[in-house]
Design a protein around this nucleic acid. Structure first.
Lengths: 140, 140
DNA sequence: TTGCATGCAAACATTTTGCAAGTAG
DNA sequence: CTACTTGCAAAATGTTTGCATGCAA
């Protein structure tokens, strides 16, 4: 049993799901797996191209949809920008966006999660998914 | 001192801000003030037209931008739909969306607000604005 | 070999904008 | 009067799709 890169894990998961691994998809998986930030479709396309993989933007979008459907990546839709994507690392988290620098940070808060569930429950609902974004500014 | 309708309050506020009250804007203010739901630009346009006011969709968008800039309305961007708008009633609230019916409900939770501020503060930030949406399903 | 995947360009949906004509103040 | 608004149509943006061709399994 060897160390598996995140890109390889992605591939294996896709194969298991019966999705074909094409040259383009493999390239995108590598780019996605390497992403430390939260790139949008155009950036992913550029990175794949820069890495020498010929991929069309249409395929980038189609691949992102497929990966999202498999639950392997998460689509983020922040205010006033194209959708961004991040590899789903399993544990849920929310986002904080520095409105001055555009930097995106992640955070988890169990109490907020619980409160949300309580609020929904009080009104007779259960949460399917939720979205919490804090648009912030560094304190002087 | 008389009872002032919400549309009239809107007009007065706009006038104070030095914004001209055109026939089109007055019509949109009335439509917005009367909205119990959370209509999008097209719906507002249709309602204004139905009310006999000739307004172009471009003007609807321009007016909505102006009203948002004045802080008189709030733009809501839920997942997978055009932006919706609601009159700003002064007190902040978040939204719960029934994924089955599309119904939008409002809620306020002081503890969640406080927790958000704490999280930001812990990381050295202060909150500029935030967005919290619960996508929910009715419990059987 | 065969059906899923791709590239391209065109279509799409929403929103924004340039410009000439209209109008509120 | 005159600067701000409008309507229209065109453009911009981000994303999706139809179709002929390509390729993974």
């Amino acid at each position: 049993m060897e160390i598996e890169t995140r890109a390889e894990a992605f591939e294996a998961a896709l194969r298991r799901a019966g999705v074909r691994i094409t040259r383009q998809r493999a390239a995108l998986l590598r780019v996605l797996a390497a992403a430390e930030d939260h790139p949008d479709a155009t950036q992913l396309h550029q990175r794949a191209m820069a890495a020498g993989a010929g991929v069309s933007l249409a395929t980038v979008y189609r691949t992102l949809s497929a990966l999202e459907a498999q639950g392997m990546i998460q689509k983020l839709e922040f205010e006033g920008e194209p959708a961004r994507f991040e590899p789903a690392d399993g544990h849920h988290h929310d986002h904080m966006i520095d409105v001055e620098t555009g930097e995106v940070m992640e955070f988890v808060n169990e109490r907020i999660e619980r409160l949300q569930a309580e609020i929904a429950a009080e009104m007779g609902y259960e949460i399917v998914r939720h979205r919490l974004e804090l648009y912030v500014r560094r304190r002087r």
